[in-house]
Design a protein around this nucleic acid. Structure first.
Lengths: 215, 215
DNA sequence: CATCGCAGTTTCGTATACGATTTTCGATAT
DNA sequence: ATATCGAAAATCGTATACGAAACTGCGATG
């Protein structure tokens, strides 16, 4: 049942995705396919399949015969991403909380612990575990497309969080909110979870807005 | 500005997508990549890039070393798709209606006319123009991700509509609803447009539910 | 007689190689 | 000096070719 065997392009997809999220890929200049493939120790074809996936994912754009570009960040897009998250994630998590099995609750708890024990200096690690936690809240609903969409939007959000927010200031509040989200989920309290997720996502958006304003 | 130059894999992406939507690709059996590439008169690489995109789009799944499979349809997934549409599309269209320029309104009218004059026998053509109309209602909002998401969900919906609904019965109602949607959009009446879209999308879902029940 | 194992065949996944398009940089003319 | 044209270089996009993994059929063995 488990899909342990993974194709090369799938792994490259994740590697390049994390690089984009972490801001380790140049913006507004084409990705050098040969160079990146050589650096990763692979050929161009699996890299190109990964890039095609990432374009579909919204992280890249491509111009024919000119290559792939990291999609630039903008306040408008940040607003858009968070509006979509607010439209989908709270309701999806609320439903998931009501149908979650014991194994699901254990997985959510585990994701929380992993997020809680992440090295605070490593922004990317925190971001990934934060994403995993949010996805874990939704996955028990067994709605595959919804879960994938939540994950995708979480990935898109991370770029902005990593680029614009210093972790220290919001660390404590985020920790408290995550803890409360966990409790609401474990209590199967869908309504409370939904309300709190709206607040949690909205609070991050407000932080981003403040930071945008300052620049 | 216009992107007239299109890469081969992009065109293949659309061709294969329409085939899947039209049900012209076998379900639950792997896609023969060599055969399909030969049939399309291309090589495997652009086909594989298109297939990778389609997997990201939710129309295909892949197992490593076993190939790509058309994702099977299910009532659960139909419910999920329409729930997502209801969560996103009405609000997005309402916003778009309030900010649309004259050119946008002309584009929506044009999309309506094209849908209205589609050959009623050709289900796929009707489906594509129906999709274009729905996307046209959202596009003026200038929210790229939202527009792409609406289009993606519309594509996923079409499979179910084509596979399960006979066009004749709902033709007249759909026509009337589309006409009213157009009027609300042109009148910049976001609230009415939102309410009507909820009804329109919900009505289609109800039709699907009835059909599922009958089987 | 059923089941397990093994080889042949098919198909997928990736690397290498080549043609096409774009970009860049220098030379020339105004 | 600046702009423009053109050729060289670089990069992308695709086709061909090869190695690896999985499925199918036959045979052997319990």
């Amino acid at each position: 049942m488990s899909i342990v065997v993974r194709t090369l392009s799938e792994r490259v997809f994740e590697i390049v995705r994390e690089r984009i999220v972490a801001g380790r890929l140049p913006v507004s200049t084409a990705i050098r396919q040969d160079a990146l493939a050589a650096e990763l120790g692979i050929s161009k074809i699996p890299l190109r399949e990964a890039l095609a996936r990432l374009e579909q994912e919204g992280l890249l754009t491509s111009h024919a015969n000119r290559g792939y570009f990291v999609r630039p960040m903008s306040t408008d897009q940040a607003e858009e991403i968070y509006a979509l998250r607010l439209a989908i994630e709270p309701a999806a998590a609320a439903y998931a909380a009501t149908v979650a099995q014991d194994a699901d609750r254990a997985a959510v708890t585990d994701a929380f612990v992993r997020l809680d024990s992440a090295a605070h200096e490593n922004l990317l690690e925190v971001a990934i575990r934060n994403r995993d936690f949010h996805v874990a809240l939704v996955r028990p609903g067994q709605r595959l497309l919804t879960t994938q969409l939540v994950e995708r939007l979480a990935v898109l959000s991370e770029r902005y969080v990593i680029a614009h927010l210093e972790p220290a200031e919001r660390e404590s509040r985020a920790h408290r909110e995550h803890s409360e989200l966990l409790n609401a989920f474990l209590a199967r309290d869908g309504a409370r979870l939904e309300t709190m997720l709206i607040g949690h996502i909205g609070a991050t958006l407000d932080d981003l807005r403040d930071q945008f304003q300052a620049n």
